[in-house]
Design a protein around this nucleic acid. Sequence first.
DNA 1: TGCAAGACCTGTAACGTTTCAGATGCGTAT
DNA 2: ATACGCATCTGAAACGTTACAGGTCTTGCA
Lengths: 359, 359
Amino acid sequence: MNERTPPDENEGLGTAGNGQPPTLKTIAFMTGLGVTTVSRALKDAPEIGAETKRRVQLVARQIGYRPNRAGVRLRTGKTNVISLVLDTEEQIGGFVSEMIYGISEALAHTPYHLVVTPYSRNNDPLEPVRYVVETASADGVIISRTEPDDKRVRYMTERGFPFATHGRTHMGIEHPFHDFDNYAYSVEAVKKLAGLGRKRLALLAPPSNLSYYRHMRDGFADALMEHGLAEVPFPTATVDHSIEDIRAVTAELMRRPNRPDAFVSGAGAGTFALVAGVEDAGFRLGEDVDIVSKQSSKLLHLLRPQLYVVNEDVRLAGHELATAVLGRIAGRDIASLQSLSKPSTVEAYETSTPGKSNG
Amino acid sequence: MNERTPPDENEGLGTAGNGQPPTLKTIAFMTGLGVTTVSRALKDAPEIGAETKRRVQLVARQIGYRPNRAGVRLRTGKTNVISLVLDTEEQIGGFVSEMIYGISEALAHTPYHLVVTPYSRNNDPLEPVRYVVETASADGVIISRTEPDDKRVRYMTERGFPFATHGRTHMGIEHPFHDFDNYAYSVEAVKKLAGLGRKRLALLAPPSNLSYYRHMRDGFADALMEHGLAEVPFPTATVDHSIEDIRAVTAELMRRPNRPDAFVSGAGAGTFALVAGVEDAGFRLGEDVDIVSKQSSKLLHLLRPQLYVVNEDVRLAGHELATAVLGRIAGRDIASLQSLSKPSTVEAYETSTPGKSNG
DNA sequence: TGCAAGACCTGTAACGTTTCAGATGCGTAT
DNA sequence: ATACGCATCTGAAACGTTACAGGTCTTGCA
């Protein structure tokens, strides 16, 4: 009695050059089934006959059916979106590109899209997060520039909103994260410099409000202690400062009587400025001063083989973070969604070109 | 007779901590109007009384109403999304971050979201574009790595889908674009090198399938001609090659009898490798060889002040591209959505630190 | 034979929005 | 008075999806 009504204007195959993209209604018409049945068949519901399921799925595949995102989202509230919240004042250095590629990689074979939600460091960092949560414009959020006591983490946790952080917190809240082990990094860095006979080290640290400031600082301090070395305070520069600032401040530091004979640097771009500043003051890398630096792009060695570098794989971080939010959305155990990436060993240029010695 | 029905579960203010976010229904209930009227009042429709409009808009603002994106999208097909189609094999160098920030900036005070749609250079570049267009998952697309005869441009043009390209095409199709004037760049670069007395120039070019390969090459060739200089062929390296490859190939080139005495480089990261390669072969920058390079991050001068650089503002490019797609979506004239960014003058380190001379 | 249980399928309603085709009421020209 | 035009407002329908509450038919068992 209830004749199937063909979707208006839509005569049949979705593949053949007809108008609108196929919907459940299209498939329902083609198979002679009800829309509900088709919907359920496509998600392998147990109350649909095996044969019917196969038939529906075959047709759907043939005509290239894709669920309409707006329909799903309106009905279920599920957006199939992950939001990456980004600071647009971010220092130059390509960090973000790699992160995005890593996330994309992890999202590639899921229905998830990646949307970038920017904010300016000068405004409230909570704002973009609140926007996403309030408007339910994503199913999960990835944030960076994590602080030890992070408002955003508290906010999302309180509301049960899935998220993952790049960097850890210290506020008694368990949540998914990925972090680079900056403690281990600076321990290794100091160890390397100690081995080179350096005595007076300075640290180009992250801004002190970020979590990894503590980690990097603690590693630095502990290792100094262990090796009996001294720290030359260098508080006026952080990896967030502009290239020009770091350069100028470094040069100034180097002109003081109590200048350092080595640096540990928390960021690749900062290291460029560090090197320039050291040289501005008339000192030579590898002779007067040694520097160990983290880097995410592998450019440092090209122009200063005397540098010691540790590579941070930001693409991997992106991948891990995306996997973690997805896991959280799927309701997986938080503990399984936390990962810490150990630094590679300190690389000297000499590893690939033996023959030069330093000391 | 027809009593307004309060939105279920939703007692009133959206601001006060109640459950769901406010919808048109919420406002309709609060104002005693119909949903239709509210919808129209919010978009300043002429058939709504002035007083009513003010009332509705006041209430909407007070309770923090935001149109539900899924609702709008389902009804109208408008997604309020711009898709940035990205090549995930992109060479290191931070290009993409800046581009994204520029786009975000332009999108900030619009209802548009930015979604990143990645693809691998190894797969069909048309695929992600086709996906977006077929599933109507965005209102507009931004593509880069534009080719002279670009399948994606043809595809979207044929379907009347709004887009903007980073780079121009040469296929008889007018479309919005933003481009850096790479012709002018290499002309300026060659001119600089000619002025320095260089005679035998090599070009680290883009891959030959991309549009700006032609531009950069033509500028290079024309300027060589004008200044009576020779080109040393350097076809085995492009800015797309890996750092290691460029470095090795450059070193090899420099060891040949007919080595160049200058380079023009099409990319900042490539220049790092170029410099390293030149030096690997035992030559010195500023003495045996001069290099003019484009850069988007300003790191080159820090470690090689002898370099000559031209800055390419990629953030600006992002801004322009976003503005262009939005303009296209708004139906604006194509001619007004095309922009070409002139290169800055060639900068030497010496401009800021006078006293050193080179010759 | 009767009936409950299951297997399989179905229509309706709802998510929030906008478009369509009116409805209502009022002032004015006839 | 009647008709008309105008200003202002209105409900119903539709976009594509899924949850809900059945419907129908077959099968098994008392």
